[in-house]
Design a protein around this nucleic acid. Structure first.
Lengths: 122, 122
DNA sequence: GAAAGTAGTTTCCTCCAGGAAACCACCTAT
DNA sequence: ATAGGTGGTTTCCTGGAGGAAACTACTTTC
């Protein structure tokens, strides 16, 4: 009798792993968290605003990632009726449910950096 | 005068974005979250255990990702003094600080899947 | 002595995420 | 008319993430 997986065999764990996969699949790519994080700070932002705010991103990637996020109902795109036509990107109500996750992400990274700093002093 | 970034100019936001980048950089790749999530369930696991538990991963990637995690002090590797030599992988105390993050990740994914299911019923 | 278990390493290959730069269309102020 | 703003799209290219499969090395069981 060959050995088989045991730990993840429990349904609760399967569901948990599935959840992790789903989340990471929706938030895949280099820029999704940055875009969402930026939209959490600056409520409504235009395309060029985001291009300026997010350091290093190019227009192609920004455009593509925004489309992904819009498709998944996390970000809304509103064309404004202004003289030079402008577009407002903002988080949807559903997109805002990601706040705790992104806050945890930022928090852990900040604490990680602090722990590096402390360990260098010793 | 050309327009410049304003939202992310605040130090607090810079730090926040930096934190997100740091976390994602340490947890980069397709398998880190799965490995960590599995180690959270099954306390101490061998290499072959992990290979069986994590669906789809190959030995090369598992080996490489475990080395990454060990380098960042998130996972500990202990060679056991058994007859067929075995290795125990487990989360370090520091690695356990990722629990809230990974729980959020799993939780959001589970709720996402439920919201899809509900929207199909209507 | 052959098979099966432990824990990986090495090689070879492929695909695609992501970057750079040019381009498009439209509007406005000078 | 031309420079600069809006919001993107298109093309072309490359590095590297990741997969498959073979191989190493040692031990125990059949």
């Amino acid at each position: 009798m060959s050995k088989k997986a045991v730990v993840n065999n429990t349904p609760v764990c399967q569901v948990r792993m599935q959840g992790i996969s789903d989340t990471m699949s929706i938030l895949s790519g280099k820029w999704k968290f940055h875009i969402l994080g930026t939209l959490m700070e600056g409520n409504k932002l235009g395309f060029m605003d985001l291009l300026r705010e997010i350091d290093g991103i190019g227009s192609k990637m920004l455009s593509k990632e925004l489309q992904d996020l819009e498709m998944n109902k996390l970000v809304s795109r509103t064309v404004m009726n202004t003289k030079p036509i402008t577009v407002q990107y903002s988080l949807t109500e559903y997109g805002k449910t990601l706040s705790p996750l992104i806050d945890e992400l930022a928090k852990w990274g900040i604490e990680y950096r602090q722990s590096i700093y402390k360990s260098k002093k010793n």
